[in-house]
Each structure stands twice: as C-alpha cells, then as structure tokens.
Amino acid sequence: MSILCRIDDKHVPLYRVMWVAATPHYCGEEDCLREGSYEVRLEQEESVWAKAPEHEELLAKLESWQGGLGGGDEGRNW
C-alpha cells in the first residue's frame, strides 16, 4: 500500500494529515471556491481541499494504514 494519497492534484503523505473534516465546507459566499469540498488539515497549519471521492479514499487509506477501526491494540503492552 502506498503512503501517498492524491488530493486536489497533490500527492500527500498520509503521515502529514492531522485531521479530515467530517462535513463539506459551506460559507454561503457566492464566489467561494471551496464550497462542497472537505478540508484536510496538514502539519504546519497547511490545508488542502478534497472532493467527495478523494475524501472517501483518504479516509479508507488512513484506516487501512492505521490498522482499521478498533483493530490491532488488543494484546499490546504499551
């Protein structure tokens, strides 16, 4: 599995992702270019904006990269 995910024509390393918005951006401004996109916050207060398919792919890759939801912690002594 690759540690890179393509977001907004950029190859972003998964380890740089701090958080991913759960809902799409909406501000109501007529000239907003981010409306309907999901904010992906990276290290050093940078952000990229993902469309819905990119958002779903990123979440799936992050879960797979980290071992899935609730998996892998049983039996560890740390």
Rank of each mutant, 00 (worst) to 15 (best):
E29M: 14
W65M: 10
E57V: 11
Q66N: 15
V20N: 10
H55N: 10
I3H: 11
V20L: 08
L69S: 10
E56K: 11
W78K: 02
R6F: 01
V40D: 03
S47K: 06
E30A: 11
C32T: 03
M18V: 15
N77Y: 04
P24L: 01
V20R: 07
L14N: 08
S2Q: 04
E30W: 10
K61D: 13
L69I: 15
V48H: 00
A52E: 15
R76C: 05
E35R: 11
H55Y: 08
G70E: 14
E74P: 05
R41A: 15
G70H: 15
E74A: 03
G72K: 02
W65V: 03
A21W: 00
Y15I: 11
L69H: 10
E46D: 03
A50P: 00
P53L: 05
H11D: 14
C32W: 10
T23E: 15
P13C: 09
D9V: 02
R34V: 02
K61H: 08
E74R: 01
W19I: 03
M1Y: 07
E39G: 08
R34P: 00
R41I: 04
R16P: 00
L58K: 01
D73A: 06
L58A: 12
R34M: 07
A60I: 15
G28A: 13
Q44K: 06
I7Q: 01
S47I: 05
H11W: 06
E29A: 14
V40N: 04
D9F: 08
H25N: 12
K10P: 05
C32M: 03
E30S: 11
W19C: 10
K51N: 07
E35C: 12
E57S: 06
E29V: 12
D73S: 11
V48D: 03
G72D: 09
A50V: 03
